[in-house]
Design a protein around this nucleic acid. Structure first.
Length: 329
DNA sequence: GTTGACACACACGTTCCAGT
DNA sequence: ACTGGAACGTGTGTGTCAAC
């Protein structure tokens, strides 16, 4: 309950500042709509800042007369750190409050000064991703499991069926779960399926992935999509892609996640692997099989291809490289 | 729904290298 | 010595995951 109050206060303050600049409610809302999911985080952090600001005896009105935002942010962050805020929280607060002042019209250099950068060094360093040669499971164990499930399809329950379908799509398209969740499909001739979705991470663009039958139908997305739609009655054919025939409602993101986890678990994938690990495992297998860098970039759709892939996707292949180094005359 | 943790993209900058 | 391109690092910003 306290969290929700805090978020509301944050949003109120954000909107109040824009209204001071004569933004209409409409324009303000459109500023907010420019974010997809991050807004819910910003409003929480702004709320946290609002608590700090009013507790130190200041009013919202005082915010409009601030001359030196860097000082305000620095004091806020320093206070957060001294009451043992986590590093992630410090970073999030800095981002959100910096954004709040940017919204007021301050220029970048007024916000991100040297002193603040000094303060931020520790929390930033602490949250930087550690590079490890962490092994990723073999995609094959998942594919093998899906293949076995294909043989006993009639006996699968609805969620398992869903999990297989999504796992297969993810393995062969390297889409993220959220992207699969908001996608729709169209069946074309010759059992070709088109999956339409939109990519929000990084660039925003719409994407169409085309699945054609593969030589092994038991793991092929087209087969699984076919049988997933086969579970519904004729009159429900036009319902959304992840509509659940039994409960007669559209699956939530969480429900899809659980469905995939069931399949991963049953395949023998170690606990703790996220759903997107299938994407990771799939790309790693491609690299292992000697796919060219162009092929990987195209399939993974990473903007920053080589570096992103090097850091995230070929983790357990170093063993192979090392083993090869042992060959000498 | 909130949160800490994580995963990226992008702008910008540096280093290295090969060709001129 | 200069230059353009490739590769990659850093800081910042935002989307995603999974636990609660």
């Amino acid at each position: 309950t306290r969290s929700s109050i805090r978020g509301d206060r944050g949003e109120e303050l954000f909107k109040w500042i824009l209204s001071k600049r004569q933004f209409t409610d409409d324009a303000t809302q459109q500023v907010i709509d420019g974010w997809h999911s991050i807004w819910s985080r910003h409003r929480q952090r702004i709320g946290e800042f609002e608590e700090f600001w009013t507790k130190s005896g200041k009013s919202w009105e005082d915010l409009t007369t601030v001359k030196d935002p860097e000082t305000v942010i620095s004091n806020f962050i320093a206070q957060q750190i001294s009451v043992h805020a986590t590093n992630a929280n410090s970073n999030a607060c800095r981002t959100a409050i910096g954004m709040l002042f940017r919204i007021q019209g301050f220029q970048e250099e007024k916000i991100n000064g040297f002193a603040l950068k000094q303060i931020m060094k520790k929390p930033l360093a602490a949250t930087r991703k550690k590079r490890k040669e962490e092994p990723i499971y073999k995609l094959d164990i998942l594919l093998k499991h899906i293949q076995e499930r294909a043989d006993i399809k009639q006996r699968l329950n609805e969620q398992e069926h869903l999990g297989c379908t999504i796992s297969s799509i993810m393995a062969f398209s390297t889409l993220r779960l959220a992207e699969i969740h908001r996608s729709s499909v169209a069946k074309m001739e010759d059992n070709v399926w088109q999956l339409n979705t939109s990519i929000w991470k990084g660039d925003n663009y719409d994407l169409t992935v085309t699945f054609r039958p593969l030589s092994n139908p038991k793991v092929c997305p087209t087969t699984w999509l076919n049988s997933w739609f086969g579970l519904r009655r004729e009159e429900d054919r036009d319902k959304p892609l992840w509509w659940r025939p039994k409960n007669k409602k559209v699956s939530s993101y969480e429900y899809l996640s659980k469905a995939v986890h069931i399949i991963m678990q049953a395949s023998g994938v170690k606990k703790g692997n996220s759903v997107t690990s299938i994407r990771k495992s799939s790309i790693t297998k491609s690299i292992d099989q000697g796919a060219t860098i162009q092929e990987i970039n195209r399939a993974s759709r990473h903007k920053d291809g080589p570096s992103t892939v090097a850091v995230h996707y070929d983790m357990n292949l170093n063993d192979t490289v090392r083993e090869r180094l042992t060959n000498f005359e």
